[in-house]
Design a binder for these strands. Structure first.
Length: 584
DNA sequence: AGGGCGAGCCAC
DNA sequence: AAACGTGGCTCGCCCT
């Protein structure tokens, strides 16, 4: 009689067995899936194992001996739901090495993150941790970091099989939790966006290094000049021999040393932030701000970004973090290509490859449209429906002047208020920004809310609900949980109310953006166009010049369609432009 | 030497 | 106090 192993699995080392495996998997509704790789980067590492689990059987395909996994393609690209933990990782490897687009996907990591409602504090989302929380089952990950490139031990194979199999009960549990918490739609959005994000990371972005270096040299020159000017305001340190004076006597990047240096000028600084320095009369304050700006650009961007260029592809492949941000927005790292300085000087260094062009598309005032939709404020909604300039309209009513007589300054003030109030901004900070006194700031806000009473009502009710019910939802149903307010101090309570007021707006914008990722990726699937960046309400696509017009149209349609899924009473507007270089 | 943290600043 | 929401990155500084 055959001995039963602890975790049953069938090891496939022969390609001829694959059709049979495919037949078994085809009959399953849900398949647990996992891979083991020789490293973390799909572009420089290999896939060693592909594990596929049904309730009855777990297959381990040894991809070192099985080269052609063609018979499994149908199962992976369609058919049963593939359950994975951190599916973007597996998707990227399978897409890069086999051109396979996993679909449909259920991601147990994303599911767990959605269920947390943005409260990630002290929570791990490793498979081990999530299985522990939802199944009371430990998954030993000690084998994960072992060497998967050579001969595999029984322990390794056991581990590989277990990893795929545990996903089945875990998915069952998380699926019902998502249903219970009314997170099915958000789940579908997140799971659908996995592929788009994986492909976007793999596509990467081209940096024109020569142009970047030129800019680096220019900015360094400007920085050195600014440093010299700044240093000239401070007295020479005492007891220094002439030769020793050559090195830097004062570290201009150190807030502490800067504070001390200002003290020598008779200026006491509470801190060295912009806001503080702007109020200082001494020219050294201005010089410091100038120096800081250039130093930031040099250190964070110009000197750093070339290091991120991948040797193989010659492009920068950032990582997008799908569910880290409580509002649902994407975060981005290594490097953060969402925070490249907005000036053309910087952005235009990100270019299309020879023969290609960029299609740059962004939503026009999406957050204000969401505010209109959610608040149902009649004037707000009407303005968007009639294609009016909302900032101008706001200024016109706020200052009681006809639309056509609104000045630039008045419109700019209205714009600041429109944006500021979405962030829960109060009279104090608004008046500071507008350069006016608090009394007038308060009056402007009062006038604003008199014109848009339902906006005020919405913001107020939202903050109250966050405090009382401790949970809020976006238009798509994405949940954010809030701390109990009674444990908070005055200041923290205020912060919570502001977070709350902003959440439904920023969150719905994220919902729309993620839907857009899905639709854009789908629309471009059979073209040579690739999504290469996503900056909250803006998408950058690279494609052969020839097909730019049709790509522009497809992207615009996909984005509009995504917006209209959630905005029913307010029109969605998308602006698209084509350029060899990234620009505003 | 390297981790952790705060200050400061870039994006939307 | 500097109160405008969401992030990530670099630097200085302090720690082990």
């Amino acid at each position: 009689m055959e001995q039963k192993s602890r975790t049953d699995y069938t090891l496939i080392t022969d390609a001829e067995k694959l059709p049979k495996v495919a037949a078994v998997l085809e009959a399953a509704e849900v398949v647990g899936a996992d891979i083991e790789t020789t490293g973390l980067s799909p572009r420089s590492s290999e896939v060693r194992l592909l594990q596929l689990a049904t309730p009855n059987e777990t297959f381990i395909v040894d991809l070192l001996s099985v080269e052609d996994i063609g018979p499994l393609r149908g199962i992976l690209e369609d058919g049963p739901v593939k359950v994975l933990h951190n599916a973007k990782f597996d998707y990227a490897f399978l897409f890069w090495h086999y051109g396979i687009r996993l679909s449909p996907v259920f991601d147990t990591m994303l599911a767990a993150q959605l269920l947390s409602g943005g409260d990630h504090e002290g929570r791990s989302y490793s498979l081990d941790a999530v299985a522990g929380r939802y199944l009371d089952e430990a998954v030993d990950k000690t084998e994960q970091v072992t060497d998967w490139s050579g001969r595999l031990s029984e322990r390794q194979l056991q581990y590989a099989a277990k990893d795929a199999r545990v996903l089945l009960p875990l998915q069952e549990r998380l699926k019902s939790e998502l249903e219970l918490e009314k997170l099915k739609l958000v789940g579908r959005i997140e799971f659908g966006a996995v592929g788009a994000l994986a492909e976007m990371e793999l596509a990467g972005i081209k940096l024109d290094v020569a142009k970047w270096k030129e800019l680096e040299i220019a900015v360094r020159e400007r920085r050195d000049l600014a440093a010299g000017k700044l240093e000239s305001y401070f007295p020479e340190p005492e007891g220094m021999l002439p030769l020793e004076g050559i090195g830097p006597s004062l570290n201009l990047n150190s807030p502490k040393q800067i504070t001390d240096a200002f003290k020598l000028l008779g200026i006491e600084l509470a801190d060295t932030k912009v806001w503080t320095l702007l109020k200082v009369e001494h020219p050294a304050a201005k010089a410091l701000l100038h120096y800081r700006e250039l130093q930031k650009k040099l250190g964070t961007y110009l000197e750093t970004y070339p290091k991120y260029i991948d040797e193989k592809t010659g492009r920068i492949h950032a990582s997008f973090l799908q569910c880290r941000v409580p509002t649902g927005r994407l975060a981005c790292t290594n490097p953060n290509v969402q925070q490249i300085p907005n000036e053309d000087e910087f952005r235009s260094c990100f270019v299309a490859e020879e023969g290609n062009t960029l299609v740059i598309a962004d939503y026009s005032q999406i957050e204000l449209r969401i505010l209109a939709e959610v608040s149902e404020d009649p004037e707000f909604v009407r303005a968007f429906n009639e294609g009016e300039d909302l900032h101008r309209l706001t200024a016109s009513t706020m200052y009681s002047v006809p639309m056509e007589s609104v000045t630039k300054e008045q419109r700019s003030d209205a714009k600041r208020i429109n944006f500021g109030l979405m962030y829960g901004r109060g009279a104090k900070s608004l008046s500071a920004q507008l350069g006016t006194d608090e009394v007038r700031g308060r009056k402007l806000i009062a006038e604003y809310f008199a014109n848009y009473p339902k906006v005020q009502q919405l913001l107020h009710e939202t903050a109250d609900r966050a405090t009382k019910e401790r949970t809020l939802r976006t238009l798509a149903g994405r949940v954010r949980k809030f701390k109990p307010a009674d444990e908070l101090g005055r200041q923290e309570k205020g912060a919570l109310r502001r977070e709350a007021m902003n959440y439904p707006i920023q969150g719905a914008s994220a919902d729309i953006a993620k839907l857009a990722l899905i639709y854009i990726n789908k629309a471009l699937r059979d073209t040579e166009a690739r999504l290469i960046n996503s900056i909250h309400d803006e998408f950058v696509i690279e494609c052969p010049e020839k097909i730019a017009p049709e790509v522009s149209e497809k992207v615009k349609q996909a984005m509009t369609f995504a917006g209209e899924k959630l905005l029913k009473n307010v029109p969605v507007e998308v602006e698209v432009m084509t350029s060899k270089e990234w620009r505003k």
